[in-house]
Amino acid sequence: MSADEDRPPSRGPDVASAFAVPGPVKRLFARFPLRVYPPNGPPLRAPQNRRDPVLYVFATRRGAVAGAPSFNPGCLKWQAFLKFRGVRFVLASSSNHASPSGALPFLLPAGSLPPDPVPSNRLAKWASDAAGYPEENSPTSREFSYLGLVDHNIRRAWLYSLYLTPNFDSVATPLYINATSSAAAVRLFLARELVNAATDALLGTSSVIDAAQLYSEADDAFESLSILLGEDSWFFGADSPGILDAAIFSYTEPLIQERLGGGGMWVDGTLRQMVLGRPRLVDHRNRILGMYF
């Protein structure tokens, strides 16, 4: 039996098994290889921690080690949600190329072989399973419409503010581009790609990009969320934070930071002022940061 285990796993069916191999030949084949040594050690850049699930997010290298909030709202939302559920995980600073869906975040469960990544749309279910939570209720229609406010109104204003205003050079470039490559040509190309992607995303739902309208819609959204939160600790008066808390935190946290990810200052501070002007949202953010990070 142990000899069988020593045999290396083969990817496809053995060539020999395609034919009816007589017993003696089969036994002869099974004797090879004559000697099996322990495996070769992994390369230096290979991640060493295989005991914990790994959440792949946009983060600075230092931020990933410290488990600091990701500077990308899409990633931060799930990072916060997993923390709310009390799931143990580590962060990996990564890029969209690493993701099976083409976008971060995604999670690689510990010790699965072959690796079976969990994309962001299955993260909620995975988190409940991992934390032994009862099956997550699908968002109520009320929750759903408020999530829509975040994912539509606030996200669009965020995209505009980060990629199509001077914030791009001061905030986005150091985080998304300069960290990727030090080569000028690569940076130039990636910068163009990012701006184009943001423009496409904005033009996907409307024919023109109207800054005033985007900002006023975001302002409305922040206002309604602030009213919804009221004097409660968490949205809808819940005992513990949920998906909407994670979603709103994923925008308030980076906007409240003066230097996002240790990068440059906000040049266009319109969105930032909207958050800072609503103490309930600021308290909400501080509460999450204090309790979970």
Binding site: P42, P43, R45, A46, P47, R50, V54, Y56, A92, S94, S95, N96, H97, A98, S99, P100, L108, P114, P115, D116, P117, T180, S181, S182, A183, A185, V186, F189, L190
Partner: peptide
């Protein structure tokens, strides 16, 4: 400029760690 992209869903953490751009 090398870009490691289009990873298989079963790609290992080592390959995922090197995904992306390098010059």
């Amino acid at each position: 400029w090398r870009q490691i992209t289009g990873l298989a869903s079963t790609a290992s953490p080592t390959v995922r760690a090197d995904a992306g751009d390098s010059f």
